[in-house]
Design a binder for these strands. Structure first.
Lengths: 223, 223
DNA sequence: TACCGGATACTGAGCGCTCATTTACCAGCC
DNA sequence: GGCTGGTAAATGAGCGCTCAGTATCCGGTA
């Protein structure tokens, strides 16, 4: 059975510390976890500082001992979510052939988003509530993620393992499949994160290995 | 060139009337269109009745002549979005073979979400702001959409045209690709809605026609 | 051991403000 | 003269955040 306790990345204290960072105080981590839960359920603007703090037994003012503002708390959540997701991609083996490489990347990306679908939902849905500076900082992290996949696909094309697919389009499709998980995934559903990872990795490989059909070039309308 | 004026489904008065419904007054339709724009940019809770009404030259109270509440306005937007999207699926030819059928469904679904990505974003992202009753009503519409795709895939499997794929999983992937469009699609990007429709239709067919790899059955963890 | 000084964590009242909605009123118009 | 579509002002609730004050802990000192 899937580890249902890990679905919001705060199963145990040790897990929580590893996820949010060892340098943060336990109370800070509790507030982050509470924020994740509240933002995921109601969205940033509909959750109050009272909601967040009362869930960890603090009064409203207690939040400002640990964070400068509600928005800062959101930013720490979203940044950590993106960094952790990127970490799992970075720690993937590079040595294997292009097919194994892409398979592993997709698997990791999907597994991460399934296991951390609550953090993921906040990271994807509440971006618009960030300040422009914070927003830009997150977009920078995303460009990194995108380029990891693009490099993997390009490598397969160069090697001749993959068909001559449109890299941008295919990578966008791969990211869509992973990202959209956070919208519908439920830990009590039929699939474990690993099963979904395997399944989507299979889909992805079919996307890049089958022969390219005659596809109109980008920039021209077919109509 | 893609019809950029139609990207929020309110290019002309006639288009607007056809989209929102002929029975609605022009001012109502203007408010709906303004609501779409505001909700898409800032989200439901962060947009004020002033934002919505001032964009059409009304005072805040003017909204309540046409809608019972801000939530009701949101509901009308989301309901209409889902109904219109479903309409395009329903009006697709049934007669052709399973492959042509699925191709056409995906194409229509993708084209609709690209052309109406602003309405689509509100429909997908602001569901949580609806009242429980309204929320449930939307979920009902979604089940319809899902079953249209499921029937199409099942038909291909029964006919022997498609591989013996997992219908639930594949359809979820198809819906993910279409739905996630509203998150990233920009009308000034490289792809027109039709091109994306063709591209994703191609991906989808590869998903269902290639041989099934050895995939673990759902419900058991691979770990 | 006893005491002190200061840092840290937190409380909870409440300020200043904004919000959705209501109400009272008004102008055309069939 | 009521109906429709609108305004402006008022209402009351609730928001993020501040701040004066309290509790607790800890190292240094004698």
């Amino acid at each position: 059975m899937a580890r249902s306790a890990a679905d919001s990345s705060a199963g145990t204290d040790a897990e929580s510390a590893r996820f949010w960072g060892l340098e943060r105080s336990e109370q800070s981590r509790r507030l982050l976890t509470s924020g994740v839960r509240c933002f995921a359920v109601s969205g940033f603007h509909a959750t109050t500082t009272r909601d967040i703090t009362s869930a960890v037994g603090l009064s409203p003012g207690g939040l400002y001992v640990h964070f400068a503002s509600k928005e800062q708390l959101l930013f720490e959540i979203i940044r950590t979510g993106h960094v952790r997701s990127l970490d799992t991609l970075r720690s993937a083996e590079v040595g294997a052939d292009a097919q194994a490489r892409l398979r592993e990347l997709v698997r990791r990306f999907v597994v991460w988003h399934a296991e951390h679908h609550v953090v993921g939902r906040v990271s994807q849905y509440e971006l618009g509530a960030l300040s422009p500076q914070h927003h830009e900082e997150i977009l920078e992290l995303r460009r990194f993620t995108t380029s990891v996949f693009q490099d993997a696909v390009r490598r397969g094309i160069d090697e001749g393992t993959f068909a001559d697919v449109d890299v941008h389009r295919v990578v966008r499709a791969i990211l869509s499949l992973g990202v959209d998980l956070v919208r519908w995934y439920r830990p009590d559903g039929d699939d474990s994160p690993q099963q979904l990872g395997d399944f989507y990795a299979g889909l992805t490989l079919r996307m890049v290995t089958s022969a390219t059909e005659s596809m109109p070039p980008a920039g021209l309308d077919t109509a």
